[in-house]
Design a protein around this nucleic acid. Structure first.
Length: 590
RNA sequence: UAGGGCGUAGCCAAGCGGUAAGGCAGCGGCCUUUGGAGCCGUGAUCGGAGGUUCGAAUCCUCCCGCCCUAACCA
């Protein structure tokens, strides 16, 4: 029996529901439904034990976040356990760098595996013993065929005109070796007597099976490579199929959740466990996450890194957890996102706008507000006493009273955003323009009196007057202004570099390429724009890497680790919703 | 082609025979010392065709489309 009863039958319809953090009632997905039903019939003695099995062959991305979190949450919700296990059976592609990054990223997502961090390589000896067992029972044999020959005989697809034919498989000529010979050869494979690829251990199943995975799959290959954990101990390595189910079994996993592409492997997963007669977890497959305007495949992400399209795995444009973190994404936002996208078997591509929505929602309530001018335009307040400075009160976070207030210095020379001024304003532009009055946030109403240009006609300075009576930003006479601008006092400003990031691809589905094209063709050439002359309010002087601020009216910005003392570098995490940009865009299209 | 899956609004996704939840995006409006946030309003007959039924997105049949596998990768 389960102590807690987080899921219950709905009184009116029999629909299963679960309560989330906010106490709202959320429908239960098909996986949780299976778990609930298993619990109801007393399967696994009422235990729920999940695991997440990454291969350490790259950095994990937001798609992985979906499956780790799902596994972790299911364990939590049903009072079960969750393991983190590295599926490290291919030493050629794996490394400790990847192991370490994955551990860091999974932990950052807020996942706790307690003391259950495992490696498939922990089970190599047991796996080997089980392999000998299958040899003895006549269920496995040593095959001397080359990869090409094996593929050929397994029933490689053949093209006949427009038709693709999958012929039945042909048995290996080595299929009927004696147990003794098989055992001898297998031991010599282990001892390193044969060159890489010379032989394999294969399961003896059925070469005519309609599921190609059941046509005598390879269990072991000779690979005399150093493994990041077992070093030179092994000359043979088990394949994924031979490793995965048994690793689950050893750990007492009850529900082995994986992505759809492994659905075809399930019969084999079951076959091995049944032959061995050991604890048999249930494999359940769900659709992997796809996100618009990006790619979620370690292989593709590796290419972006290797070809120099991005700085590294943790480039803020990457959908990797490390990249998102550096960009300024929070674990909360990612968890919220994962909780919203659902769990199904339907192939889907989630709009990246939903991820950004989750981010904004989290940052809106947590990020302190500051003022920063990205593209400064000098403003001189002609009627403000030269050399005078006053401190004005500013609210740190209107969404959170506890965040308090701070003081911002004001003086006669300021910077405002260049795009907040327009000499000849179009219809719905209601920021500053000649003769017009606007509010400087938390400061005064100002009116533009003069526009000063250089010899090329470029505006280099504005002259304005201020209304002393509007200190703090309200006019005693009740007159209104249509716009409020952010600003920074020139004498007090600190200089900063700001990196403006945009989506990495211009195409909604980068993998949808035209004939003769390449998926890299839709890389966004403007995915990174660096500004070096930004002016920030002085309170940002001590900002530390990783901190996230809202630059009022501009967006959220995260301090990059590249920052040096007195030379902060900010990454734009995401812009604020910008209705003016939409209006402008519509006008320009006309 | 074989085998395995999937198909509910632009994008996710509830629904499990009783007459289409919710979120994101979009659009319109209210409010506003961030054109931010917030608030209100706004869209579908369920891939198609038949059938069963008083009644079907939900059951049956056929058809169509998309995805996966055809690695000594995972």
């Amino acid at each position: 029996m389960v102590k807690k009863k987080p899921h219950s039958e709905n009184a009116d319809g029999g629909t299963l529901h679960s309560a989330d953090d906010a106490g709202k009632v959320a429908p239960v997905d098909f996986i949780r439904r299976i778990v609930i039903e298993d619990l109801a019939v007393g399967k696994n003695d009422g235990r729920v034990h999940t695991r997440w099995p990454p291969e350490p062959n790259g950095y994990i991305h937001i798609g992985h976040a979906k499956t780790v979190l799902l596994n972790c949450w299911i364990a939590q919700e049903f009072g079960g356990k969750f393991n983190l296990r590295f599926d490290d059976t291919n030493p050629e592609k794996e490394s400790v760098e990847y192991v370490e990054s994955i551990i860091e990223d999974v932990r950052w997502l807020g996942i706790d595996w307690e003391d259950r961090l495992f490696y498939a390589s922990d089970y190599f000896e047991q796996l080997y013993q089980w392999a000998e067992e299958l040899i003895r029972s006549g269920d496995a044999y040593i095959c001397d065929l080359s990869p090409e020959e094996i593929s050929e005989r397994r029933g490689k697809a053949i093209r006949e005109g427009d038709m693709v034919i999958t012929p039945p498989g042909k048995e290996s000529p080595h299929r009927d070796r004696s147990v003794e010979e098989n055992l001898d050869l297998f031991r010599r494979m282990r001892a390193g007597e044969f060159p890489d690829g010379a032989r394999t251990l294969r399961a003896k199943i059925d070469m005519t099976h309609p599921n190609l995975n059941m046509r005598d799959p390879v269990m072991y290959r000779i690979l005399r490579t150093t493994h990041h954990r077992t070093g030179g101990e092994w000359s043979i390595y088990p394949t994924y199929d031979w490793t995965h189910g048994q690793s689950d079994s050893i750990e007492g996993i009850t529900h082995s959740i994986c992505t759809l592409e492994f659905e075809n492997h399930r019969p084999l997963y079951d076959w091995y466990l049944d032959r061995l007669g050991i604890h048999h977890p249930q494999q359940i497959e769900l659709a992997r996450l796809n996100l618009s305007y990006t790619v979620l495949s370690k292989r593709k992400l590796l290419q972006l890194v290797e070809k120099g399209c991005v700085g590294n795995w943790n480039d803020p444009r990457m959908p990797t957890i490390a990249g998102l973190r550096r960009r300024g994404y929070t674990p909360e936002a990612i968890r919220d996102f994962v909780g919203r996208i659902g769990v199904t078997k339907a192939e889907s591509t989630v709009d990246i706008a939903l991820l950004e929505h989750c981010l904004r929602q989290d940052l809106n309530r947590s990020a302190p507000r500051v003022m920063g001018v990205l593209d400064p335009l000098k403003v001189v307040i002609t009627n403000y006493p030269e050399g005078r400075t006053e401190e004005l009160d500013a609210i740190n976070n209107p969404e959170d009273e506890r965040a308090g207030t701070r003081q911002v210095p004001f003086s006669d020379v300021l910077y405002i955003e260049r795009e907040d001024f327009c000499e000849d304003p179009p219809k719905r532009f209601y920021r500053l323009s000649p003769g017009r009055e606007v509010r400087l946030r938390y400061a005064y109403f100002i009116t533009c009196t003069d526009v000063i240009k250089d010899s090329t006609g470029k505006i280099i300075e504005l002259r304005c007057t201020y209304d002393e009576a509007t200190r703090g930003g309200d006019s005693p006479d009740g007159r209104k202004v249509k716009a409020t601008l952010h600003w920074v006092s020139a004498a007090h400003a600190i200089d900063a570099a700001v990196r403006l990031y945009d989506r990495l691809f211009t195409q909604e589905n980068p993998l949808d390429v035209a004939e003769g094209g390449d998926w890299l063709d839709s890389l966004n050439p403007n995915s990174l724009q660096t500004l070096t002359n930004c002016k920030l309010e002085p309170s940002l002087g001590g900002a530390k890497p990783g901190e996230i601020y809202q630059f009022e009216r501009k967006g959220y910005f995260c301090v990059d680790p590249d920052s040096k003392d007195g030379q902060p570098v900010f990454n734009r995490t995401v812009t604020l919703r910008d209705t003016w940009a939409k209006i402008k865009q519509k006008h320009e299209k006309r």
